[in-house]
Nucleic acid binder design. Sequence first.
DNA 1: CCTATATACTGAAACGTTACAGATTGTCAC
DNA 2: GTGACAATCTGTAACGTTTCAGTATATAGG
Lengths: 349, 349
Amino acid sequence: MDRHRTEKDDEASGQGRPTLKTLAFMTGLGVTTVSRALKDAPEIGAETRRRVQLVAKQIGYRPNRAGVRLRTGKTNVISLVLNTEHEIMSFVSDIIYGVSEVIADTPYHLIVTPYSRSQDPLDPIRYLVETGSADGVIISRTQPNDPRARYLLERGIPFATHGRTDMGLIHPYHDFDNYAFATEAVRHLAGIGRRRLALLAPPVELTYHRHALNGFTDALSEVGASEIPFNTVSIDHSIEQIRMRTAQLMRRDVRPDGFVSSAAAATLAIVAGIEDAGLKLGRDVDVVSKQSSDLLHLFRRELLVVNEDFRLAGAELARSVLGWIGGAAPGSLQSLSVPTEVLAYRRPD
Amino acid sequence: MDRHRTEKDDEASGQGRPTLKTLAFMTGLGVTTVSRALKDAPEIGAETRRRVQLVAKQIGYRPNRAGVRLRTGKTNVISLVLNTEHEIMSFVSDIIYGVSEVIADTPYHLIVTPYSRSQDPLDPIRYLVETGSADGVIISRTQPNDPRARYLLERGIPFATHGRTDMGLIHPYHDFDNYAFATEAVRHLAGIGRRRLALLAPPVELTYHRHALNGFTDALSEVGASEIPFNTVSIDHSIEQIRMRTAQLMRRDVRPDGFVSSAAAATLAIVAGIEDAGLKLGRDVDVVSKQSSDLLHLFRRELLVVNEDFRLAGAELARSVLGWIGGAAPGSLQSLSVPTEVLAYRRPD
DNA sequence: CCTATATACTGAAACGTTACAGATTGTCAC
DNA sequence: GTGACAATCTGTAACGTTTCAGTATATAGG
């Protein structure tokens, strides 16, 4: 018996990563006391608490994630769920960096959960929930009636959506104000004399399709311009398709003299299509586009841009999820990002 | 005693996620037997094995990661370590998708471990190792003498580098053949009559700086062209700086008539600089650039491109790490990606 | 002086898994 | 019929943590 005890204590003072047992041995306290002292439990004496925390810091104690997770079910993991084929490139990296910034000084890790073509978007969410792999989830490509949000809400798993839903349910989100973007874009185009405008919208199934469309049409009637329908493609289509459709459209008798584009990559395709049709940007037609990094003005100086900050979005989403996990009311964790003005090219000094 | 037993068994058949105990109860076997049956241990009867596996599949048993991790130390996690400020956008998303594809049907999760400005690149690696947070690591921005590779090698942690090292140590890597890229680029430029070439290289501290530079200079002497030094900037510099330096360079008496650019974003800046100086791409100067997505030809048709597939890189890196974890020899897990030819613009049909 | 109560601490059990060291059969040789 | 041995299966302990139900000591109330 006695022998057994000392063996254990010897082990505790041994080589490997320090554990609570190590700390208990070093401080002469029980494992329980150490555990509670580290989390500032009130029933531990103030001096003991300081002593334990000092020793813990000195020897670089870090709680074993598996131990905590097994005992408590807390994973300290946030999962970012991504569509492997449709997500925009810069979106992914910036969102990840934004999330990283926020969770950097928390115990949380970020895991990326991808889902691919033809797969039910609910699959990865189910997996996460069923295996209890994350304390919180961030989802993108949000739909008005989003089964993922509903599912997570039903199970009580904290999450945040990039984009809003429209189901009468309350949950954290971060969104870019695409209504404001579209109205500003239309107003700007009208302001420089453009009258026949086309919108390259997000895909219909996503919530912000409606936002962009409503902003577009509302502003059209406000400024008295007319719409040239351009809904055979969306920003999810391939560069080649958008380019071809744009060229077709621009060869018609009644063609747009202004475009509003909801994504930078799509804008490259629109411009290519315009030029395929033998027309010139800035003379025959103007294009207002969203962009998330400052590249479009290098592409064509005539382009008009509005910036969307995905890094900010990532940070906001992370803050929202952590807030919910921390007990804040879901309804208080919603944010909307206001677009910049429409910006024309400015020569660098 | 008896009462105690039945209570436990009742719990095992209960509501929550199935565990080994649940399976043991359902099959009438011991927990140990079930555990071994699931991993095809030879000392379990063939029929028992099949029976257990059938039941496990039926009720959707999935091993508890925390349990496994606590007991065995195996995390089933691969960590991708990223620099938050210098990594190229498309690089990040494509690498992640490539890695995801490969680990999709393994028990592995992907965690992203970022490190930011001014931080020692070794910090995140140390964290991972000290906390035992991952079974394998993928690192990028590899240097000839890379402390991270050395560190991981010393601790025996499986890893793969994106890019090679030059320390006389053997480890898995995936690299793009930047020597071949540079030589092909120079040959192509010489082939269309360009004689005074400038190289926009990767930053000096990264291994592939030398690869690109060597390929460039070797090919220069092969074709008898001359170098216009352009080493005040690298692809890590800001768009504005590259643009400004390029414009300065193009206003000199002896200016390049050809550029080799190691990154697509930098190429946008080079072209802007060329045009700032009042010169025309394709007439006064040609540019060969690497790109990872097919956007440069939309930008300027005159550009000459070579494709680098980051998704492939991600997949190869993941395969290498998993291979090493699985016991393969590190030396057998190295791969080099051959560049495409230099491609000129081809009109879409 | 004895009982109540607060304070400060502790051991045992449990989370789900695997490794170790058996235990129970049945078969076979002799 | 006995011993040896292989073939199957099993209980216990341990990984590191937190929670539950205490225990010991001091303080105060009567």
